[in-house]
Design a protein around this nucleic acid. Structure first.
Length: 629
DNA sequence: GCAAGGTC
């Protein structure tokens, strides 16, 4: 028997081949430099002793498009909602990648899919099968084997090889549905918008619509509008400071009013006067409580967390961070950088990874202490996300960083420190809380004493410090002197423009894009001149913020005025709705045809509305220009 | 010249 195994990426093919081949693997080159064919023997319980070839693709092999006669300007845009679709190779290497599969499959009896165990992986498996059956008619959905694995631990991989199932046709249908809807809606609206803004407003460049681009823009515009419409409000609060009676110093400890802020000055004033009348000199300690507290070590690292942190710590864009992480991955220094998983598989040998970091002159000692001191190490916390395809991001081998540039070194160091931190105990401290009563009002203050830094010793990006000003040592029932008691006022301040980490977080929770694409969508709306990135603040507090351009603002406002059942294209609901329906397909609760019809007709209606009243969009733009003039 | 999803 001859078995052809195909993985989603070359690194997986190599790793699986060397595990199954037990080290006896011969390598053949292909026409595509980075893809190799690995030959070895393996005993599958399903087929007995087999000759195996393991190879890979690099993600999707094919993509969908419209036929020639539906090109830009050659047809009515609305016809794109019903136009026929064709499948074509995705980029110039795909032809050779596909041919390698076809050739190898022609000489094999069995096809076994080793793509990532997620929705897209299932579809890539289907694409591989389609190439394989071209010269091997025995291969089909009901004969193709599917290995299920989520990491590359040896016994897990062998178990996957021996316990194959079939490709999941529901997941394949869900991906087909997504692809078709994205293409039809994206092309129709993009052609319409581009032509409209070119003709009536002489605007250059492409004005694109994409189901992820627009909600991303919407988040930026939303924040901008909140800032624009912000009106500061005055508020009042009791501003109280106290000190122990025996304390001779003049300064007191400021305590926080339980009512927070009052927006009614007279109400504040009457409370203030009542308290003054009751006691203008002292307040009473109600309770003093000292409790152990902890500052939690971080969860295992996901792509989105890495991007948010690198933006916060190093001011890198999400795209820059991912590009650097990809380079570190391709050099073998870190694990696969695109993952949603924030829990390590229980069986994974984390201590072996820590061992490799002992040679570092910066964090090596800490790594050693985790291994040698049993009170230091702990199994990482487990988050609630698991993409069933990749483990959390972690360092694979140590590098001194000699072959890396400065930014690559920073990201590598961050990934190592994050990994060591999540294998560490939480930081611990003692928090003392004091509750006081002055007149009718309650106040509180608290102080922190850090006891053990633990993970913070290695995770230098977070700080948790003992309170600078010591809180007074008082007892319940004790009277304390008021060093000041005033009714103070302040003004609410406007929200800040959206930062990239905030945008990433919004996209993540609203299901806009994936770990691999969030950075691209942000980049895309900048490239389209819908938003710009601007520096805000100076020195250490300098951050980059996202501001909508006139065009971006006008698009969001214009589409907001066109009511599609209150489902504006710039809001995340439509995309979320699509995701929910795709999941329904995967769960067998809906079908490809049903979802294509439901969502497709919604977009067709939206397109009809928009194309019937193009002036809403152009006038929205002119209005923005006029108001900024 | 259009989308979003993989990956190099």
């Amino acid at each position: 028997m001859k078995v052809l195994c195909v993985a989603e990426k070359p690194a997986i093919a190599k790793a699986v081949a060397f595990i199954l081949g037990g080290g006896r693997v011969s390598t053949r080159e292909t026409k595509v430099g980075w893809i190799k064919n690995y030959d070895f023997d393996f005993d599958f319980p399903q087929f007995g002793s087999c000759q195996v070839t393991m190879t890979a693709v690099t993600g999707h092999i094919t993509t969908i498009d419209f036929p020639e006669n539906y090109g830009w300007g050659k047809c009515d845009n609305a016809s794109l909602f019903t136009a026929p679709l064709l499948t074509k190779y995705n980029g110039k290497n795909s032809t050779n990648i596909a041919k390698n599969i076809t050739d190898e499959a022609a000489r094999s009896n069995v096809l076994m899919i080793w793509t990532d165990c997620d929705r897209e992986g299932e579809f890539i498996g289907y694409e591989i099968m389609e190439q394989a059956r071209k010269r091997n008619p025995n291969i089909g959905l009901d004969t193709t084997h599917r290995a299920h694995f989520s990491h590359l631990e040896r016994s897990h991989v062998i178990h996957a090889a021996c316990n194959t199932t079939r490709l999941d046709s529901k997941a394949i249908d869900a991906v087909m549905t997504r692809m078709e809807l994205d293409l039809r809606t994206g092309s129709s609206f993009t052609r319409f918008l581009t032509d409209l803004f070119r003709k009536s407003l002489k605007l250059d460049g492409v004005v694109s619509y994409g189901g992820c681009q627009f909600p991303t823009l919407g988040f930026v515009v939303d924040r901008y509008k909140r800032i624009k419409s912000f009106k500061p409000e005055e508020f009042w609060y009791l501003n109280l400071s106290i000190k122990k009676k025996s304390d001779r110093s003049k300064t007191g400890t400021s305590v926080t009013w339980s009512r927070g802020h009052l927006f009614d000055r007279l109400a504040g004033l009457s409370i203030y006067q009542r308290c003054l009348e009751m006691d203008a000199e002292e307040a009473t300690v109600v309770s003093v409580e000292t409790k152990p507290t902890s500052n939690w070590a971080p969860l295992p690292l996901t792509t989105v967390e890495m991007q948010k942190d690198c933006a916060r710590i190093f001011k890198f864009s999400a795209k820059q961070t991912l590009a650097i992480a990809e380079k570190l991955y391709n050099s073998g220094f870190i694990s696969y950088p695109r993952t949603e998983t924030d829990r390590f598989p229980r069986k994974m040998e984390l201590k072996k990874l820590i061992e490799k970091q002992q040679q570092s002159s910066s964090w090596g000692q800490y790594a050693s202490s985790l291994l040698n001191d049993p009170t230091k190490y702990r199994q990482p916390r487990e988050g609630s996300h698991d993409d069933k395809a990749h483990p959390p991001i972690h360092p694979v081998i140590f590098t001194s960083g000699d072959s890396l540039n400065m930014n690559e070194r920073k990201v590598y160091e961050y990934i190592v420190r994050r990994f060591l931190a999540c294998c560490s105990k939480d930081a611990t401290g003692l928090r003392t809380s004091i509750k006081l009563k002055w007149g009718t009002e309650s106040f509180s203050t608290s102080g922190l004493v850090v006891k053990e830094l633990n993970y913070l010793e290695v995770y230098i990006y977070n700080s948790w410090e003992s309170s600078k000003t010591k809180i007074p040592e008082v007892n319940p029932g004790e009277k304390v002197t008021l060093t000041s008691a005033q009714l103070s006022s302040g003004k609410t301040s406007a929200p800040s423009p959206l930062t990239e980490p905030e945008l990433i977080a919004l996209m993540d929770v609203n299901g806009i894009g994936t770990d691999a694409t969030i950075a691209e969508h942000i980049e895309k709306i900048i490239e389209r001149s819908y938003v710009t990135k601007e520096d805000q603040g100076r020195g250490k507090s300098k951050t980059k913020v996202l501001i909508p351009t006139e065009l971006g603002y006008a698009l969001a406002e214009g589409f907001g005025q066109i009511g599609f059942d209150s489902m504006s294209l710039t809001k995340p609901f439509l995309r979320k709705n699509l995701e929910v329906k795709l999941k329904a397909i995967c769960d067998g609760e809906s079908s490809k045809e049903q979802v294509l019809h439901e969502i497709g007709s919604m977009y067709r209606e939206a397109y009809a509305l928009t194309s019937r009243s193009p002036r809403i969009l152009t006038e929205s733009y002119q209005k923005v220009l006029a108001s900024n003039a």
